[in-house]
Design a protein around this nucleic acid. Structure first.
Lengths: 238, 238
DNA sequence: AAGCGATGTTGACGTCGTCCACTTTAGCCT
DNA sequence: AGGCTAAAGTGGACGACGTCAACATCGCTT
């Protein structure tokens, strides 16, 4: 028999779906190394193609990163919808969404950083369109949950006033976003308490600091993580 | 006269304070290009030394980035203290600090991203010590402002309960951090409204969404910035 | 005055992103 | 059916990068 016709050819000249393979490899590397600094060439190696093949599917590295980031937004959105599906009351749905958002970031910090770390916001001010669409879709979920809450009188708002809804969304989003990134950066911890922390923060957000302080679980630290002490001092002049 | 002894020598063999010069060059490049991806070699070029001179002052690039980040934390802390100095009431001091924090990020996104973007949080879990010290100092300012507010009955807390203070700090910090990063990422805007936005968010945080919704200024957008429409649709399978 | 350690230089190596010319292949048009 | 074209993949090259090693120059201390 000839060598590559009848037998299962392990590597045909054309890959078939290299676009998806490259994005998948990027997600793998991101999860494994938890570092943003992977090389395009390594993705090609993982996909079993030459170092230049990806250029037939992505204009440049930034374009590839944008595609990966977009998938990240889609994954996050899916986790958020899945989480809310299990609950009925607006309060519980909001809490579930907050949990899913924080978990999404904490469980894959590198991907979250790629999505929100501004690797794509570059100089020409705009994010790639593909990524903006995905981000827009995710934001719509926040809008729904908050509007939902407003209708359910979780928030004292006549549903019509969209400016007020926007205010609530802004607070909710920035609150959860900030908590997630502080956890990811280990400026708050430990990460295992992320569910309790997101619940505390959500409760505090709803009640307001001027009315009652939320309880945060014991063992939580805020600021640089505890551990080695005797840190060096700094010198900043001029 | 000989050429390099009596006249003002433009470039002596030893620089004198290359450490500071390199960090300064990094801050310059960061401000100018608003991109994280600058090269160590370019900093050396700017400082007028060979591409290897910086290695006498920094173990590697990460070490240099940590030093830059530490300076960023110090600058931010300074802006925060300066801002609060002008005010007396706890409420105003807190608002001033929030404004300063958000401004710090928005006015130099690249530096803020370096500080919080996890370029240093790498795999060995810890940030460089020098940076942790600076971050710790900055956090202390938040603690003061919140404790201050608690004593001033801005927050209904007997001053002794540090767990409650921690809860308030966590909410305040993550709220401002999230707002700053959404602004920096242009997921909320426009940036010119940052002062009004931080005030709105602060007010909402104090009051609580369940009690009253803060007013956000007109013209604010949330989510991917408006502009070109007809964004492409996505495909996420498998 | 000597020398030693800190500081800076030169050259090299491997890797990276990207460009170019070339090859292979699938699918469409007569 | 058969050939053409354009998409998909290959291989080599280039300049820039981070880092290492060997060497050069200088200021301080004894």
């Amino acid at each position: 028999m000839t060598k590559a016709t009848t037998t299962a050819d392990p590597r045909p000249y054309h890959h078939g779906d290299l676009h998806r393979a490259i994005v998948g490899a990027a997600l793998d590397v991101l999860s494994e190394s938890q570092s943003i600094e992977f090389s395009l060439r390594e993705l090609a190696r993982r996909a079993g193609v030459s170092h230049n093949a990806p250029y037939k599917h992505f204009a440049d590295k930034r374009d590839l990163l944008a595609a990966v980031s977009a998938v990240g937004f889609e994954l996050l959105a899916k986790q958020m919808t899945d989480a809310t599906k299990e609950h009925d009351s607006p309060r519980e749905r909001l809490a579930a969404m907050a949990r899913a958002y924080v978990r999404g970031g904490v469980n894959n910090p590198a991907l979250y950083r790629l999505m929100f770390g501004g690797y794509l916001t570059g100089q020409d001010d705009g994010r790639p369109a593909i990524e903006r669409t995905a981000a827009e879709n995710m934001k719509a979920l926040l809008v729904d949950a908050i509007s939902d809450g407003a209708l359910g009188r979780l928030i004292p708002t006549a549903a019509a006033n969209s400016r007020e809804i926007d205010g609530a969304i802004l607070i909710f989003w920035s609150q959860m976003h900030g908590l997630t990134l502080l956890l990811v950066d280990r400026l708050v911890g430990p990460r295992e308490k992320m569910d309790e922390l997101s619940e505390s923060v959500l409760q505090g957000m709803l009640n307001g600091l001027a009315n009652s302080i939320p309880v945060i679980p014991p063992g939580v630290w805020i600021g640089p993580p505890p551990g080695d002490s005797n840190l060096p001092s700094l010198a900043l002049k001029g």
